[in-house]
Design a protein around this nucleic acid. Structure first.
Lengths: 210, 210
DNA sequence: AGATGTGAATGAGTTCACAGCT
DNA sequence: AGCTGTGAACTCATTCACATCT
């Protein structure tokens, strides 16, 4: 009964991505219908949680029957706004930035890396997987010209704050930060941190347990 | 009053890593003492949460005074078992795996990438930032010889399950999975997923909001 | 006075269990 | 019978507010 809603819990949202992927897999296998239980068993999820998560956004299934795979996948796809193509700019085209340029650019029609910027003059002009490297100083112009909405920060820690300010100034609306630095969230700009060292240190902690 | 405890909430644990980094920063700046309030203001954290998080592990500060920066950093360092050096094996030395080999190997004495394996024969024998690439079929031997405790999965989705099984068989105790695949957790083996596409899709959702 | 450490209060997120539909 | 959708119960996490110590 809930209408299409204002803002969903981030964890629910992340699981939606997971469900979508699982459904695509089933689609490839030619499965037409699936129950929350089957989904859960097959992909190590929780059936109650699948239903609750979906309930945030409406009704997608048929009682007594289950979900139609393609149709549910399609609706999750739209829900996540993946019908739109989103453009990314990568700030910092070192190892990680370059790897991501190749990784994101590939085989996906919802996301496209349209540019990379780097502060080291030696790299400017180079292309990484069709992504042209431009000078960091040109960030604002690059974002404007390419209409990029998402910024990716892959610079060393010392340069992260400047990269962040640059992206804010350039007007991107979402930022994925790989630098190990605490950035201050701004209203209207989605900030998400991906911190490899935190993951490693969590594992380290568990390795050190009795 | 709580004794050194059995298992901490993962979210608390991750923030411990953050706190440690912030303290190291203050150390470099020559700051000797800090209060939870000052830490919070400086790094966009919550002072109550800092105190609560630390409370899981004991008492670290002095009432009315605050925390001694180096000493607290040192204790968090040990708590996270970072005094030990942990060895990693990377499964899948493509773009992402190679980038991580360079990224993790650098400037860190708690983590060391000791080997990479790859199934494409063309890459075997190559070195990426001092990491020798060995054949995937040798994974069990490589892990044994290097005494690696942490496995990193950076293969394409189709190969992820095999990489996971290989690492389990080889006996690593923690696994960082970058492949967009739901792996089944096993008791005794810490599994952590890092899924770029999920992050991108979360941003996509927010970009699509009214 | 000033800051920690902590019980109590609140809020978020997950699981349960069942009413209601096919 | 079978499965969704959902209120209620429960668990986990954050925030408040204050007793306690320097």
């Amino acid at each position: 009964m809930s209408g299409p809603n204002p803002a969903a819990p981030p964890l629910t949202l992340n699981r939606l991505s997971v469900y979508l992927r699982c459904l695509r897999q089933l689609e490839r296998e030619g499965v037409a219908r699936v129950s929350s239980r089957q989904l859960a068993d097959r992909f190590h999820l929780s059936s109650a949680q699948i239903r609750k998560d979906l309930a945030h956004f409406g009704e997608f299934g048929v009682r007594g029957v289950g979900y139609e795979v393609s149709s549910l996948a399609g609706r999750l796809h739209s829900l996540l706004d993946l019908d739109q193509r989103h453009r990314l700019v990568i700030v910092g085209m070192g190892n990680l930035g370059s790897a991501l340029a190749r990784y994101f650019g590939f085989n996906d029609d919802s996301f496209e890396v349209v540019a990379g910027v780097d502060s080291s003059p030696g790299r400017v002009g180079e292309r990484v997987a069709s992504v042209l490297i431009e000078p960091f100083s040109e960030l604002v112009r690059v974002v404007r010209d390419s209409a990029a909405e998402i910024g990716v920060i892959t610079v060393p820690a010392e340069a992260a704050e400047a990269a962040y300010q640059g992206l804010l100034e350039a007007g991107v609306r979402a930022i994925l930060n790989f630098a190990p630095v605490q950035l201050q969230e701004r209203p209207g700009v989605r900030l998400k941190n991906v911190d490899m060292r935190i993951h490693l240190e969590e594992m380290s902690y568990f390795l050190g347990l009795p």
